[in-house]
Design a binder for these strands. Structure first.
Length: 789
DNA sequence: GCCTTGAAGTTACCG
DNA sequence: ACCGGTAACTTCAAGGCG
């Protein structure tokens, strides 16, 4: 029979000594199904010295029975664009590959072992052009369902499924969950502290809250497992679940001797690649991975992200500080509040899932990583899997990941801005500048011509400044890959114009074009990453060099035709708007540089200081853009950010420095009176390394050390919120974690005036000649007090 | 020993 | 575990002064 199904998860198992690929998915009729394929075997390649193919082949064949090798064949492949003969070694058991790889790497005549580090199920998908999170068709027969599998049907494939479409996914059952733990000191420790609440809700509105019997969490873990298995979701989501909830539950389950069997094949979540947990047959997604990409939210707590996305307002929910959860648990009058809090959390989590999953699905089907891995994988790996897929299609061997030393190279140009307020300024942007440069100049590791190689100059593109040469033909790997991405995106965007933005089809396609853009834009960064399989410094270096040339020439041309250039950064040019001249420039760029440049926006007014990468502008609709300034940085207090934002608004809309001064005076007065909420004084900074590795005792490091003393475990990537208090010389001595600052009297008000409000306001007002003394107002200053005192 | 100064360390931003 | 360019803060140690 023929079956159309959507792939949700993939793994493999051994049936005797037969590796069996298991494609977990949803059939067209809505049934949950697994498609088994026993036809595929693991393999890898040996790159051998030229002419020794047959010789090495015979040697390898001698090991056939020892290593359960099925086949050795000489095949025609390409390696960095050059035709090569490689030995394809096919084995029986996937787990044997690492060992065989090591043995064969040592054989005489073997230069390299390639593609031996690609996981079996990924290999299967790549070779058969199968995409996760997409529809496929397969000729299959129904077989008996193994005991304990939570699916309706199991099929055995007659041949590998065929990709059909990555259009709208089937209705997917999403199960959001969240746990609360009991701990009095610092952070909960799984070995010691019980889980007290487990909350879950599905996208069908099916809610379940399990509360522990006092501090015994055995039953609720059991009930959670039952609940999850009974509801049998396709997707399980949490917030920070890969780093917290799952490892925590796994430890608690072990301690309680409870089985955490939530997968569709009856097992527990298993630690997998990219630091994620895999739940067989379902997609376990940690939404924090996607929240990380929302740069507008600086402190990415569940509450903050949910609020930003319009999922749940902070005003309409219970918020309990982690450190006080135990108090709410212990007090019978407060406990209902805690339950409510857990409910709000899990509802927010589900809300986030609805926002992120459509994008995740598209990203998954484009780069080819299973839905549960694609969020956990870093940008570099997402790009790389996309490239690996393409390499297979082009018959290119996939290079190994090797350790390389870091090499510096020059990046983009940033112009010095013209300081001041400028009116009617157009921002021109090159469309996808780096991808298009790589395409038009055919920049790729396989088209690179090293300096020692002679080649007629008319056959290569010679890079300005650095001189790297790349063949004009044939099309390089990066060109082919990027062209495909940009064309696909263009097609989708054209289609989107005809669709109703409310339609489900629009949503799917819009997420898809966003995912295509993300991958295309990240490909340049990938090629300059020393960890990349397709790393080539010259490739990255040539791309930025052409970029510098193009923007410089555009600026020169703009000036030549009389456009006033205010600023520029990498691929953008800010000019005083003159419709005719701008149109001329756009055409010139297209004609002379072969690239597209477009008006991105027109500012009614834009303000620059002397600093690069920092400005603010007023848009025609009255909105204000703030770029790079303190107001958009996460490491300034809300107090300072609010002040700067307001100052910017006054300057851009009313052009009145005097009014801005009065406003700042008022804020400082409020601060001195204690009329500013404490939370506005919190300064957030990330811990970027192990605490003991810091060379300098920065304020946030000092605050983190206090937290460690209190029993918190501070790990890399964590944000520390501190308030600067009185008593102490250095700021680091005065910085206290905000959770231990309860009284306004502790706050060092002078710090917030001199190091937060004043610099943030003066950044803007300084240009208008405003001095610090005018901002701090009539209240006598410290220096004067000292003088008279 | 105190104060100034600039380098170094650190973070977060822009495109 | 994508890139380089950039601003800005805080700490820290060297250098200057007396």
């Amino acid at each position: 029979m023929k079956l159309k199904f959507w792939i949700l998860d993939i793994n493999y198992g051994l049936v005797g000594s037969i590796p069996e690929i298991r494609l977990w998915g949803i059939a067209e009729d809505g049934s949950r199904a697994v498609v088994l394929d026993r036809s595929f075997r693991p393999y890898f390649y040996l790159l051998v010295e030229e002419g020794r193919e047959e010789d090495v082949k015979r040697t390898v064949e001698k090991y056939a029975s020892k290593f359960r090798i099925l086949k050795v064949e000489v095949v025609d492949k390409r390696y960095f664009g050059r035709p090569v003969k490689a030995l394809k070694v096919t084995c029986q058991i996937p787990k044997d590959v690492p060992r065989i790889r090591e043995e064969f790497a040592r054989l005489p005549g073997v230069k390299d072992v390639l593609e031996a580090d690609i996981r079996f199920y990924m290999r299967y998908m790549i070779d058969n052009d199968i995409y996760p999170s997409a529809w496929h068709e397969v000729e299959a027969e129904e077989v008996e369902k193994p005991a304990g599998w939570d699916v309706e049907k199991v099929y055995l494939a007659k041949r590998p499924p065929k990709f059909v479409t990555s259009d709208a996914p089937p209705p997917l059952l999403v199960y959001a969950f969240d746990i609360e733990c009991y701990n009095k000191l610092g952070e909960p420790i799984a070995e010691r502290d019980p889980v007290i609440i487990i909350a879950s809700v599905t996208n069908k509105g099916d809610k379940a809250i399990f509360a522990a019997e006092d501090k015994n969490d055995r039953t609720i873990i059991q009930r959670f497992v039952e609940d999850l298995r009974r509801k049998n979701p396709d997707i399980v989501v949490g917030y920070n679940s890969n780093r917290f909830d799952w490892p925590y539950l796994i430890t608690r389950a072990r301690k309680n001797k409870v089985r955490l069997d939530v997968s569709r094949s009856g097992g527990a979540p298993a630690q997998s690649v990219y630091g994620h947990y895999s739940i067989t047959g379902r997609a376990n997604i940690d939404l924090y991975d996607f929240a990380e990409d929302i740069y507008e939210v600086k402190v990415r707590t569940l509450e903050n992200v949910a609020e930003y996305l319009g999922v749940k307002s902070k005003n309409e929910r219970v918020i309990i500080e982690g450190a006080y959860i135990y108090k709410y648990w212990d007090d019978p009058k407060l406990r209902p509040k805690l339950i409510e809090y857990a409910e709000d959390d899990v509802e927010s989590t589900l809300g986030l899932a609805e926002k992120f999953i459509p994008f995740a699905i598209q990203l998954s089907s484009i780069v080819g990583l299973p839905l549960d891995q694609v969020g956990a994988a870093s940008v570099g790996y997402r790009v790389e899997w996309h490239l690996m897929r393409q390499a297979f299609k082009f018959n290119e061997l996939i290079p190994n990941r090797i350790e390389r030393p870091y090499e510096k190279y020059k990046g983009a140009i940033v112009l010095k801005p013209k300081p001041g307020v400028h009116k009617n300024i157009a921002v021109l942007d090159f469309s996808s500048m780096y991808p298009n440069i790589m395409i038009t100049k055919n920049i790729s590791p396989d088209t690179y011509v090293p300096p020692y190689e002679d080649v007629p100059l008319d056959e290569v593109y010679v890079t300005p400044e650095v001189g790297h040469k790349f063949r004009k033909a044939p099309a390089g790997f990066y060109r082919r890959v990027l062209e495909r991405l940009l064309e696909a995106r263009k097609r989708i965007r054209e289609k989107l114009r005809e669709l109703n933005p409310e339609s489900p089809e629009y949503v799917v396609l819009n997420e898809r074009q966003k995912a295509l853009k993300v991958i295309a834009n990240a490909t340049y960064g990938y090629c300059g990453w020393v960890g990349a399989r397709w790393y080539k410094r010259e490739v990255a270096e040539a791309t930025t060099a052409w970029g510098r040339k193009f923007i410089s020439e555009t600026i020169r041309q703009a000036r030549k035709i009389g456009l006033d250039v205010i600023y520029g950064d990498t691929d953008s040019v800010f000019v005083r708007y003159d419709k005719a001249k701008v149109e001329d420039l756009v055409k010139w760029v297209e004609r002379e540089l072969g690239l597209e440049i477009k008006i991105d926006k027109i500012y009614k007014k834009v303000f620059f200081t002397e600093a690069k990468k920092r400005y603010c502008g007023l848009l025609p609709d009255g909105r204000i853009d703030v770029v790079g300034l303190e107001a958009v940085r996460g490491d300034w207090s809300d107090l300072a950010k609010d002040v700067q934002e307001k100052v910017i608004e006054i300057i851009l809309k009313e052009e009145s420095p005097q009014k801005a001064i009065e406003y700042v005076n008022k804020v400082i007065e409020d601060l001195r009176k204690g009329n500013i909420p404490l939370h506005k004084l919190i300064i957030w900074k990330t811990i970027t390394k192990r605490i003991e590795d810091y060379e300098v005792e920065a304020p946030h490091v000092a605050a983190a050390k206090i937290l460690v003393q209190m029993g918190y475990q501070i790990s890399k990537g964590e944000k520390i919120g501190y308030i600067v208090c009185k008593d102490g010389e250095k700021i680091s001595e005065r910085a206290k974690p905000y959770i231990i600052v309860n009284d306004y009297d502790e706050v060092d008000v002078e710090y917030y005036i001199n190091n937060q409000i004043v610099p943030a306001a003066l950044r803007i007002l300084g240009y208008f000649g405003v001095k610090e003394t005018q901002l701090v107002g009539k209240t006598p200053q410290k220096s004067l007090l000292e003088f008279f005192g």
